[in-house]
């Protein structure tokens, strides 16, 4: 009972503490993690980081409810760690260093507070538990930021890959070509279709030549998507021309009973382009000698 009372007294003492200038003592932790080999921060930045942290922890400990996770002071602390870890990750740091820094900061903070106040906080279970819970939440914020950044990177890479896998080119004013290479599955067909329709609207393309020379396999679902793509292109008011259908693909389309009525097909990309040009009234001829 006596021990419990003593413990809670130390916690109360912690919350009523007038924290002095301890940021200098915390700077060493920052320097150790971010100024050594990796050079993620300079000395001034570490000093700013430590003093901002001290001002935030002072605000949190002196707030009305320092143990609550919904106060603006706690939120500010979370945001601080989140922004800091984002900055470190953007500079090429790794999440492990940021987490280890937070853990070391926790121990050094308790030590600094102990030294500053003369109260032995390291022997108080409730104080240690309070800081452990607080820093667990802050480490969670670091991980959230890390995962968010990873997700952003993955999305950007995915978008880049999508862009390169559907190279829609305006080969002539109002004529788009779309060479499809590799395996066409349903999700890719949808992506191609989305990109193509948006491009038609953007460029006001009057003809689209879809070249399937590089497509080796096609299944029932994909062939339906392909026809749907042609139909959508036509609905937007453009002409759709399919070229380079391999004999295997042609056989598959016939055996799958795919209705190609109203779909213009040509043997090769060059034939498809000639067809598109002739529909637009463009004549391409050899220069007279």
């Amino acid at each position: 009972m006596m021990q419990k009372k003593e413990a809670s007294e130390k916690l109360t003492a912690l919350f009523n503490l007038k924290i002095g200038n301890i940021s200098g003592q915390l700077e060493e932790t920052g320097r150790e993690f971010f100024c050594s080999d990796n050079k993620l921060m300079d000395e001034d930045e570490v000093a700013d980081l430590s003093s901002e942290f001290v001002s935030l922890i002072t605000g949190l400990l002196s707030s009305k409810e320092p143990g609550k996770r919904t106060t603006p002071q706690f939120h500010a602390m979370e945001m601080f760690f989140s922004a800091f870890s984002q900055r470190m990750l953007m500079r090429g740091g790794n999440v492990e260093d940021v987490v280890r820094y937070a853990q070391k900061l926790q121990y050094n903070l308790i030590a600094a507070l102990e030294k500053d106040s003369g109260i032995i906080f390291t022997q108080s279970r409730s104080v240690l538990l309070y800081f452990a819970q607080l820093f667990d939440e802050l480490i969670m914020a670091i991980f959230h930021t890390y995962l968010g950044e990873r997700e952003k990177t993955l999305k950007a890479q995915e978008a880049e890959l999508r862009e390169t896998s559907t190279p829609i080119t305006e080969i002539w004013d109002g004529v788009l070509t779309l060479p499809i290479i590799g395996t066409l599955d349903s999700s890719r067909t949808m992506l191609v279709m989305e990109a193509l329709l948006n491009r038609i609207a953007k460029d006001h393309a009057r003809a689209v030549v879809m070249d399937l020379t590089g497509v080796k396999n096609i299944d029932s679902q994909v062939s339906h998507h392909l026809i749907q793509m042609v139909r959508a292109v036509q609905l937007m008011g453009s002409d759709a021309i399919i070229t380079g259908i391999h004999p295997e693909i042609a056989r598959a389309l016939v055996s799958l009973n795919i209705d190609l009525t109203g779909v213009t097909t040509r043997a090769s990309l060059s034939d498809g382009l000639k067809e598109a040009f002739s529909r637009m009234g463009i004549q391409v001829s050899h220069k007279a000698a």
């Binding site: 329709l197 948006n198 038609i200 959508a232 292109v233 609905l235 937007m236």
Partner: peptide
């Protein structure tokens, strides 16, 4: 016709 409309209609 908007791309989204062409898509849904098709």
């Amino acid at each position: 016709m908007q791309p989204t409309a062409a898509f849904t209609l098709s």
